[in-house]
Amino acid sequence: MSAKTKIENPVISLDGVSKWYGDFQALKDINLEINLKEKIVICGPSGSGKSTLIRCLNRLEAHQEGQIHVSGVELHETMKDVDIVRRDIGMVFQNFNLFPHLTVLENCMAGPNWVRGIDKKEAEKRAVAMLEQVKIPEQADKYPDQLSGGQQQRVAIARSLCMEPKVMLFDEPTSALDPEMVSEVLDTMVELATSGMTMICVTHEMGFARQVADRIIFMADGEIVEQNTPDEFFNNPKSDRTKTFLDQILI
């Protein structure tokens, strides 16, 4: 990632972003720029504000101070076309949040068909292609609750990809999974990273972070404590909080 694109082409930029829940400050003056095709892993102890941060990026949460720009569009409370920004940002949730009354295929077709206005045939073609990409085309006609957790999460990834997003947000995508299913989801994410998707992942999977991240951001108490390349982050952590965290998580 050259320094030039970093300045000229941030797909997402945060400028002095703060957020409060009542009196509790969840985000404290966050400054961050994320470039196209960059892979970011955000980690930190629970309650550090990492989920809140990525939920602000598609305005599922509102920030109170500072500015967030996505593809040059500022997110603010009176914006009418927030849906247009959201269409370009895929999001994968901890609890999958698939639509249980729709089949896997319908889950994947819903976005393109309903909001992008793509006709059913085309949407179905795209859905099948994405299900092939996450390696579960044979489950297309099942309902989500007939699938294992790992399969559900892969469907959720496919559902997001069907919208052809510019950025993918992952909010602890493997935290609700049984241990033996974590790797199938991580493999899918690694593949997605290799394909050049811009990805922002909140996760505790440090192996994944080491493998794909361009940058690891460590948060604590609503602040970005440290950000660095994986090598530097793991081998040469600067702050004591990072060291403590790594000691706890890397056993």
């Binding site: 849906d83 949040n97 249980p100 976005g111």
Partner: peptide, 27 residues
């Protein structure tokens, strides 16, 4: 209906009426 259904719909760019009609009411 769990909040996650709204969030997933919102994240896909669905509008309120659409979410209600296609996601929430059927469930």
């Amino acid at each position: 209906i769990p909040k996650g259904q709204w969030e997933a719909s919102r994240a896909l760019g669905f509008k309120f009426g659409l979410i209600l009609r296609k996601i929430i009411l059927p469930q």
